[in-house]
Design a protein around this nucleic acid. Structure first.
Lengths: 188, 188
DNA sequence: GTCTATAGTAAGATAGAC
DNA sequence: GTCTATCTTACTATAGAC
């Protein structure tokens, strides 16, 4: 995920911490990941971590910001397209790409209570998610569309890390997810 | 979820513990839920909890068993149907019902690393999930079906707790999820 | 920026009384 | 079955030297 995420103004020390944290969070959950585990993964002491982020919550926030920024950029790129169909297509392709290239972490981070709290309560995160969802919904705010978009977004993140897909390579997974997602988009 | 879950041979004390634990796990994540929190929610001391379950891991396992048993029963009911289409329909309806009636916990428990470890590594759980998935897949083990089933299963659990669906009542949510799911099933 | 050392707290788990 | 009290361990976080 590291190379596909935008980096704001982060130092290389901070990037190494966030990379390690992201992987540990997805493997053990935020609540079961200690600063000691992050420090060990980076190869430094706990105090060195605290020098960069003065609380564990700040690391969670920073990891969330990376993902949020990626989603914001994808959405703004899609919104440059002229037609609704094209906006949906461009956004879908980018989301599927991001998820497939980060199979081991996409779904878990999306459903982790600590990240959910960010994406549901913190304005910068709520705004990005709303824009992303509305790009799919377009001008058809019928109730059915809400369920379809929810299933689309959580289904993509969940599917890429499902063990039943383990023997699909990235190319095949991308292809089949795109077909499945388009079947849902037709319902919007 | 309590009333819709099968109960094995559990005492009422154990049921109260598992109810509280399930809700706390889904709200905070397993890793961020302490035995003290469970004890407070039940209204007893930590020692009383330990009298029923000698480790936190045992509580996680028992909560997982409840869900696993519900899924196993649903699958076996569906498998009594004569045609593949009917088996899929019956299983889908039951899964959507279970998810919709447990909106606040379905998706989070499905993606929590502690439960994922059970459902991916412990034989009784792995078996139930495989049977459930194969009921959908039927006789078409093409690669595309794997991605579609993964999206179906994770998408339903994810959608019911997505904030975008908060203003849909259970009836509407069930209806729209069924339509969306059927669009995916057509691809199998 | 990184370390060692440590304070302070809360976790999981147990002992033994009632 | 439930309690109080306690043990041990691990956690978050900080202080201060290099």
């Amino acid at each position: 995920m590291a190379q596909s995420l935008p980096s704001k103004d982060l130092t290389s020390s901070q990037l190494r911490i966030l990379d390690a944290a992201r992987n540990l969070f997805s493997e053990h959950g935020v609540g079961s990941t200690s600063l000691q585990m992050i420090a060990d993964a980076v190869g430094v002491s706990k105090a060195a971590i605290y020098h960069q982020y003065k609380a564990k919550e700040d690391i969670v926030y920073a990891v969330g910001e990376q993902i949020n920024m990626a989603l914001a950029i994808m959405t703004s790129i899609a919104l440059q397209e002229a037609t609704l169909a094209k906006r949906r297509e461009v956004l879908l392709n980018q989301i599927i790409n991001l998820a497939v290239e980060n199979r081991t972490i996409a779904g878990r981070l999306q459903q982790d209570p600590h990240f959910l709290k960010l994406f549901r309560e913190e304005p910068p995160f709520v705004d990005v998610m709303a824009k992303l969802e509305n790009t799919f919904i377009g001008n058809s705010p019928k109730p059915a569309s809400r369920a379809v978009v929810a299933m689309l977004i959580t289904g993509i993140a969940g599917a890429v890390m499902h063990p039943i897909c383990d023997d699909l390579d990235n190319h095949a997974l991308r292809l089949h997810l795109t077909k499945a997602a388009n079947a849902l988009i037709k319902l919007l």
